[in-house]
């Protein structure tokens, strides 16, 4: 059984701690991850901007890197939804590539989706005595359909004070290249999102996608809003360690 980690370019290059937390947490369930080094990026930045030739280049590397894997797990709903939702469109003109793209989609999972849906875990045994709010990223929740899994996991964390985020489903304004191309609209959107986080008086903002979290976190840091921004894998792993220490 080969279970592979798809770090995603964002976590690999900017937030290695996220993939690390995921690997450490899964190791507690006996999941020995492999890291096929041929992986680069899922291709989404190019795909969404309309550069499909460039996106295909990335997608082919990914398909190739995980050819022998039985499972592929990534700390991102967005990159996994790219594989599930957009690879079929990208390779629709080539039956052989389309089949390989579908095979990859079939075995690819977002982190919380794998933990809850495949491993059947809803309580990782964590303790996290903080006030926490959750931003559901659009691609993971709408396109991939991962809505309940993160909430299930959070609801079982001991001493965690969960506060729902107002207008949680509204996009944070990241949108990949949108944040650069339509910088003014993106700024207005992320400012409103950061306002909503402030309303919750949460100490921690948690999510499943580093793109969105980098956007919201960057906005909050810029205006001196002291909220810790964490990927769910980080929160759960830290919480498990905290519970271990107490035991």
């Amino acid at each position: 059984m080969k279970i592979s980690l798809f770090a995603t370019c964002l976590s690999d290059a900017f937030f290695p701690r996220v993939s690390e937390a995921m690997a450490r947490l899964l190791a507690r369930y006996g999941i020995r991850l492999t890291f096929p080094e041929g992986q680069t990026c899922c291709g989404q930045p190019a795909f969404n901007s309309g550069y499909w030739v460039e996106a295909k280049e990335a997608a082919r590397r990914l398909i190739d890197a995980f050819r022998d894997s039985d499972y592929v797990i990534a700390p991102s709903g967005s990159c996994i939804s790219m594989i599930h939702h957009h690879y079929p469109a990208l390779f629709r003109d080539d039956p052989a590539e389309l089949r390989m793209a579908r095979e990859l989609a079939e075995k690819s999972y977002e982190f919380s989706q794998f933990l809850v849906g495949v491993l059947g875990v809803s309580d990782v045994g964590a303790r996290f005595p903080h006030r926490v709010t959750y931003h559901p990223s659009c691609h993971g929740s709408r396109l991939l359909g991962v809505k309940d899994e993160p909430l299930t996991l959070l609801s079982h964390v001991r001493d965690l004070d969960f506060v729902p985020l107002p207008f949680a489903e509204d996009c944070c304004g990241f949108g990949g290249t949108f944040a650069v191309k339509m910088a003014d609209i993106s700024a207005a959107m992320v400012t409103e999102k950061a306002d909503h986080v402030r309303e919750t008086e949460a100490e921690v903002l948690v999510g499943l996608d580093m793109g969105c979290l980098m956007n919201i976190g960057g906005r909050m840091r810029h205006r001196g809003q002291a909220v810790r921004v964490m990927h769910l894998a980080e929160l759960l792993y830290e919480g498990v360690r905290m519970a271990d220490e107490r035991a």
Partner: peptide
Amino acid sequence: KGWNNVRTAPALAERSFRESWQALEREL
């Protein structure tokens, strides 16, 4: 510019995940 007008951009990590993988894998 567009990003940092209202946000602060993160820097590339000193060691990427792939660069730390071997050590992490051994430890795990």
